[in-house]
Design a protein around this nucleic acid. Structure first.
Lengths: 231, 231
DNA sequence: ACAATAGTGTCTGTGAGACAGTATCGA
DNA sequence: TCGATACTGTCTCACAGACACTATTGT
């Protein structure tokens, strides 16, 4: 071995070399929700070059005094005024030319929320902020900045997997929901149809019944259930 | 919204602020293998402060002209002369004080290998390099540098999960193996005993028989199997 | 023959897949 | 009454858990 990994000498030597001076660390946010029976992601339209008029994920640079997760939480607060939301680190993207101007390492975080919690329109200033269907982005129908299309593809893949072996679906609902609606969201995320009878067998043990019913449609009402202890 | 995320102005402004000048990006490597029926991880003994005489994961700083994965591959080559090995990004650790000297964001990579591929002793120079049992590190019996104990705990957790729903066990074998040996490694990773009859039912369809037998013990020989197409 | 490990046959329980049937609403 | 959707009963099948049994080696 030709080096002493982790030694103080190496740390400081490296830091003093020009090549290590221009790297920045950012967190990009994948704020995902369900809108009109589609998985959508929050994006902002760029008003400057490069990728002018393309859509990009919101993100912030990581400050010296905050952790990666704190940066992500701060980004959520600043961009969409969102707090106490499900958040998990997704992946770290660090290709050399992912940003043509300077080297940016992007630690991405995935946030899941019910649609009604989003009020990004309130804080919006200059640039457009929109919920765009993930399918359209991956399909190439929407001009996307940097490597954000790849990031979104990865998030979708991760979500598709996790929905099958975790309780992640429930993060798309804040309070009550009916089983048919829960199943619909599940099917969107898992990208497959399931039989309602099997779906019920799987999820009924996890949720608690309420006395309420959904009578909004002209048909037999469906019962409301709850997953989260509070609200 | 008070900012234009991702705009050129923000990028350059941020970069010119003092607070963004001192961050470094490194990749730390979790080189895992099985030795004497235990999961072990390759670590190096630090000869300098801080954490002098503690054990640390090998790692390298990410250079401007290489991707994160390229840095990890380079680290593998430099530290243990290892190439063409299974490698996956594990997690990114970025707590503020994980290194007391300067802010280091660590993108960790997990590498799995059969024991016989490791020849780190050849390249070793000053500092000690050793394979240490993961259990001993997590148990606190070994003095560990930085947040590396936490990183190792996470790697073990990830491995335990993945071994159940992926083919990841096979990365601990290079060529041939017997089913009893494969099962032993599986049980070490999964941290549970399994019935051999069920284990065989699960894995036999994935592997191909050879004509060879293991006659090293004083008992009925076990058959050798192969997983990877080549050797 | 015996100890020890390799390998097999088979019963059971669980949970998903599949589909037919019943229940309850508005119109 | 009827269309539409909510909900239930139940058969099947794949697969893991469990355990008793047989097979083959060296000594």
């Amino acid at each position: 071995m030709n080096r002493e990994p982790g030694s103080e000498k190496e740390y400081l030597d490296s830091y003093n070399q020009e090549q290590f001076k221009k790297m920045s660390v950012a967190t990009d946010l994948l704020i995902l929700t369900i809108e009109e029976d589609r998985l959508v992601v929050l994006m902002t339209k760029r008003s400057e070059y490069p990728f002018k008029n393309c859509w990009a994920l919101p993100g912030v640079f990581v400050r010296m005094e905050e952790t990666l997760e704190e940066a992500a939480v701060r980004g959520l607060k600043e961009e969409v005024n969102l707090e106490n939301i499900y958040l998990e680190q997704l992946y770290t993207f660090g290709d050399v030319d992912r940003d043509p101007r300077l080297r940016v390492i992007s630690v991405t975080y995935m946030a899941l929320t019910p649609l009604e919690k989003l009020d990004f329109k309130a804080g919006s200033r200059v640039s457009e902020v929109k919920l765009l269907p993930v399918e359209d982005i991956i399909g190439g129908e929407i001009e996307t900045a940097f490597d954000h299309r790849e990031i979104i593809r990865y998030a979708k893949w991760r979500l598709k997997n996790k929905v099958e072996y975790t309780d992640i679906v429930f993060h798309f609902f804040s309070d009550m929901f009916t089983l048919p609606k829960l199943q619909k969201v599940y099917e969107i995320l898992a990208e497959k149809k399931v039989y309602k009878t099997n779906f019920r067998k799987k999820f009924l043990p996890l949720i608690t019944d309420t006395e309420l019913e959904d009578r909004s449609g002209g048909r037999r009402p469906s019962r409301y259930y709850r997953y989260w202890p509070e609200t």
